[in-house]
């Protein structure tokens, strides 16, 4: 049996930023979180726009789209805080 996901911390924008791709409503939740990250200076306007483009599509992975568009993915966007990639 899979462990229940940890409860979402409403004060931590990255919690929603990392909502799994495919999950119902996750496209919108990721974009909303990205807006918070943008306000906090954690991501740039270009990356925010990637999340916006994906916001209506729960299955669209913004990281993939960013890489396809050759945008540097900020560390905060990567689930396990991997090295930034482009």
């Amino acid at each position: 049996m899979m462990a229940a996901p940890p409860p979402i911390d409403h004060d931590d924008p990255t919690a929603f930023l990392h909502m799994p791709v495919g999950k119902n409503g996750s496209g919108a939740a990721r974009y909303a979180a990205a807006m918070q990250c943008y306000n906090n200076g954690l991501i740039c306007a270009e990356m925010l726009e990637i999340y916006r483009r994906c916001s209506k599509f729960d299955l669209e992975d913004p990281i993939d789209l960013a890489r396809y568009e050759e945008i540097t993915v900020p560390a905060v966007c990567l689930p396990n805080q991997q090295e930034p990639t482009s």
Partner: peptide
């Protein structure tokens, strides 16, 4: 809407 409301027009 789990963490925010997003306008479906321009976002």
């Amino acid at each position: 809407c789990p963490n925010a409301l997003i306008c479906p027009f321009h976002g």
